[in-house]
Amino acid sequence: MQLFSTFENTTFLEMAIATLEKNEISKEHIFAVPLDNRMEDRKLFDTIHRSDGTTLIDIGMALSTAFAVIGASIGFNLEWGPIYWGLIGAASGFLVGFSIRLVTEVLVKKKRRLLKGQHSEVILIVECPDHQADLVENILFRHFALGVAKIK
C-alpha cells in the first residue's frame, strides 16, 4: 500500500520520517518530493479562462447608476438636457468607481493576492504493508500532515 501526504517544509516532516523509520519502515520505502511554489505575482485582470473571484467594476456600476440619476436630475436645469447629463454622470461615476477599486486592489490588497495560509511544500510517499497503513497514517497526521491519501 502507498500513502501520499503533503507537508510544510518544517521539522515535523523530519520527525515524521524518523518516527516511520523507528516503526520498521525502511528508508527505501520513503520518498520525499519538494514542490516548486508559485513565484510570479498573481494577475490583476481576469481572462475568459481564469478568474479569481474579484471584480473591478462593482463599485463603478453602483456609482455609475447614482451619478446618472443625479446627472439626469440636474440636467433638466442645464443647457444640454437630462439625457446628455445622465450619460456624462454615468461615465464619470463608472470611472470614479473603477479608479477606486483599482487603487484598492493594487495598493491596499496587494498582499491579499499572494497565496495565503498553509502551503504544501513537500509530498511524502510511503510504501508499506497493508497491516501498517493505519499506523503510518496516524504517524503522518500526528506530525501535522496537511493531507493523506491511501492507494492500494
Score class of each variant (00 low, 15 high):
T6A: 13
T6P: 05
N9I: 02
M15A: 10
I17A: 08
I17K: 10
A18W: 02
A18P: 05
E21R: 13
I25S: 08
S26T: 15
H29M: 15
I30M: 03
F31W: 14
A32T: 08
D36P: 06
N37D: 07
N37E: 13
M39F: 14
T47H: 08
I48W: 14
I48N: 10
H49M: 12
H49Q: 14
H49C: 11
R50C: 03
S51D: 12
D52Y: 13
G53Y: 01
G53W: 00
T54W: 01
L56W: 01
D58I: 14
T65P: 05
T65M: 15
A68Y: 04
I70Y: 05
I70R: 07
F76V: 07
L78W: 14
E79P: 11
E79M: 15
E79A: 14
W80P: 12
P82V: 01
P82R: 00
S99L: 14
R101W: 00
V103F: 11
T104S: 14
E105C: 07
E105R: 09
E105M: 06
L115S: 02
S120F: 03
L124H: 06
V126N: 05
C128W: 00
C128M: 04
P129Q: 06
H131D: 11
A133W: 00
D134L: 11
E137A: 03
N138K: 07
N138W: 02
N138I: 00
N138Y: 00
H143K: 03
F144M: 14
A145L: 03
A149S: 15
